[in-house]
Design a protein around this nucleic acid. Structure first.
Lengths: 218, 218
DNA sequence: TAGATTGTTAATCGATTAACAATC
DNA sequence: TAGATTGTTAATCGATTAACAATC
C-alpha cells in the first residue's frame, strides 16, 4: 500500500514523500492516456483536473526533481513523460520472480502493464509438488528449494510474494539473502526485511475494508 | 490505494483519517494471526512492534471509536477483534460483482480472504462474446448488457472493476446508476463517481514504480 | 507498593495549498 | 499588452508522537 510512511531521497538529497511518488505514477498514466490525442502541451491545471489533484500539488511534486514547465505554456507532454519515466526508474528493465503460483500470482504473470513498463517476470516458484515442473503461461514452475541458485543465475532484482500469509516471512528471508533488492508482499501478513531492501506491502483486503466501513455507516 | 486523502466520519461525528482505517485492518489481521496462540491480552506496544507502528499510534487510532483497553492489562484479544470487525463493517456480509473476467478478475473470484471477511461475489460480467455464458470457477459469466437487471435483482453492494482501463469510466457510470454504493477500481485509469459512492482506486503498477524508483537511485 | 499500560493532551512534524512574483 | 501558467514561499492543515496523569 502506498502510504506516506516510507520516504526516499532524490538525487539532489531532497526528501521525497512517497505520496508524491505515487502521484508521479498517476501523472505518467494520465500522460500515456492522452498521448496521441494531438495536444503537445498540458498545464498542471489540466493534469490536476483529470486526476482530482490540486494544480499546486502537481507543480510541487515535480519541483522535487527540477523545473520542467514553461511559463504560460505548461509542460511538453512528450518531455514530461520522459522525465517521469526517468524519475520512476523506468528507463531500464527489471527482472522479477514470483513466489506462489496461485490465482494472484498467475494474474501478475499475465499483467500486461508490467511488461509495458519494463518489469519482466523471469522465474516462477512454488512448493506444491503438483505444480513444480508444470509450464504455466509459458513459465516453468520451479521448486522453491532451487530459489537461491536460479535467482543468482538470473540476477533477479524484484521478488513478488503471492504465497499464503503463513509463508511470507520465510520467503522474504530467502529473498533478502539473494540479489533481490525490492520486494512486493501481497499477503495480509506484514513482513520484516533489512533496511537496504525496498518493501511494498499490498494488502487488498484493506481496500475492501475501507468500503465495508463506509457502507456500514449508512 | 489507501492514502490519507479520503476521510470518513465515525458514528460520533469525529473525522477518521483513512490511514487510521487502513491500520485498523492491519490490527485485525494481526489479531487473527495470533488468535489461538494461548494469549488472552495484548498491549498496544506488542501490536505496534509486530506491525512497525508506534504504540501511541495504535491507541490513538482506537480512541476515535471508544475506550477498549484496560490499564496495565492491555486489550482483550477476542473483544478487540470484535470491536475492529464492527468498526470495519465486517459484522455483515456484502454482495459484490466483478466486471472484467481477465486474470485479475479471476484471482479476486477465488480470493479466500474476501469470503472469510464476508464479501461474496454473486455475479460476474464481461463483454467478450467468447466468455459470456461460460461457467468460470463456478460462476456463470453474464453479458455486461444485462448488468442493470442482474445487479438490481441481487441488490449488489460493491462493484469491482477489472476491465481494461479504457472501459473503466463506462463501467463505473453503469454501477453508479445501480444499487452499488462502493466501487473498487483496479485499472490504471482514474474514474469519477458521485460523492455518495465510496471509491477505492487500486493501481498495482504504482507499487512497482515505487520499487523501480528506489532501485534506480542506487 | 511498584510496574505496566491505558487514554489524552500538547508539541512536533510533515504534507498540502493559497498566494504571488516572474515571465512567456 | 493582457492572459496564462510556472516555480516557490509562507501559511495552513492534519497526522504522528512524546509526555504524562490515571489506574489496574
Amino acid at each position: 500500500m502506498l502510504t506516506n510512511k516510507t520516504q526516499t531521497t532524490n538525487k539532489y538529497g531532497k526528501r521525497v514523500p512517497s505520496l508524491t511518488l505515487a502521484r508521479l505514477g498517476q501523472y505518467l498514466h494520465f500522460l500515456d492516456s492522452i498521448d496521441g490525442s494531438g495536444a503537445f502541451n498540458i498545464s498542471s491545471k489540466a493534469i490536476g483536473e483529470a486526476l482530482d489533484i490540486k494544480p499546486t500539488q502537481v507543480r510541487k511534486d515535480l519541483s522535487f526533481f527540477g523545473e520542467f514547465g514553461q511559463k504560460s505554456k505548461g509542460y511538453d507532454i512528450f518531455d514530461l513523460k520522459k522525465v517521469l519515466m526517468e524519475i520512476l526508474g523506468l528507463n531500464q528493465t527489471y527482472k522479477a520472480a514470483i513466489i506462489g503460483v496461485g490465482n494472484l500470482g498467475s494474474a501478475l504473470l499475465n499483467f500486461k502493464s508490467l511488461t509495458q513498463y519494463g518489469f519482466k517476470i523471469v522465474a516462477v516458484f512454488d512448493n506444491d509438488k503438483h505444480k513444480i515442473g508444470m509450464v504455466h503461461y509459458g513459465h516453468k514452475i520451479y521448486d522453491i528449494s532451487s530459489f537461491k541458485d536460479i535467482v543468482a543465475d538470473n540476477s533477479i532484482d524484484i521478488g513478488i510474494i503471492t504465497t499464503p500469509g503463513a509463508a511470507a516471512q520465510t520467503v522474504a528471508d530467502l529473498m533478502c539473502e539473494s540479489t533481490i533488492r525490492g520486494i512486493i508482499n501481497f499477503t495480509t501478513k506484514k513482513i520484516k526485511v533489512p533496511s537496504f531492501i525496498r518493501l511494498q506491502e499490498v494488502d487488498l483486503t484493506l481496500e475492501f475494508f475501507a468500503i465495508s466501513h463506509h457502507l456500514n455507516l449508512k
